[in-house]
């Protein structure tokens, strides 16, 4: 089961409040989308429609912006987000192997979310910690000097 987007009245009013502020600024769409992504964890069509009505921008256009940027997503992400840095410094130090290991151990394709909605696996671009390459992050936590062994350990811990 894919985790469903949780749209509550409370979150909606949070979005509305954010839009009230941004509407007054020039170029309100990006800040609004950042807010929506933060509040709901993704920006599905119903949310896009609300933004469309409020900012008078067509839904297709909003979706065009949402799908253009890697930071926004239309589908909800998993409970845990594993991101492996594929910046050059990390790549030449073997981060592809780490990504493959996560993909194998979590049984999920890169960019996808596991069926139980527990994990999303992403490849990210440089997060600027190249001195510690290869790097990966699980949710907010950063793991430095990654290795396949470390992946195994982390996955075990996450699954338990």
């Amino acid at each position: 089961m894919r985790s469903k987007v949780n749209i509550t009245e409370e979150k909606l009013s949070e979005l509305k409040a954010a839009m009230e502020i941004h509407k007054k600024e020039p170029g309100p769409l990006m800040p609004t989308l950042h807010a929506a992504q933060k509040i709901f964890g993704c920006i599905p069509l119903p949310i896009q429609k609300i933004i469309s009505n409020e900012l008078d921008v067509s839904i297709a256009r909003i979706n065009g912006v949402v799908t253009f940027y890697g930071h926004f997503s239309v589908e909800p992400k998993g409970k845990n987000i594993v991101s492996v840095c594929l910046g050059t410094a990390c790549y030449v130090k073997g981060s592809q192997g780490i990504l493959d290991a996560f993909s194998h151990d979590l049984n999920v394709k890169v960019g996808d979310t596991t069926d139980d909605g527990m994990f999303t696996l992403e490849a990210t671009r440089c997060i600027g910690a190249c001195g510690l390459a290869p790097i990966f992050t699980v949710n907010e936590e950063v793991f430095a000097n990654g290795s396949v062994q470390l992946v195994k350990k982390v996955v075990q811990k996450l699954k338990s």
Partner: peptide, 21 residues
């Protein structure tokens, strides 16, 4: 109207309504 727009980017770009609705 703006019914159609680009979605995604790069070689995955397609044109259509939002999410190819």
């Amino acid at each position: 109207l703006g019914i159609l727009n680009f979605s995604n980017r790069g070689s995955n770009t397609y044109i259509g309504p939002a999410q190819f609705h």
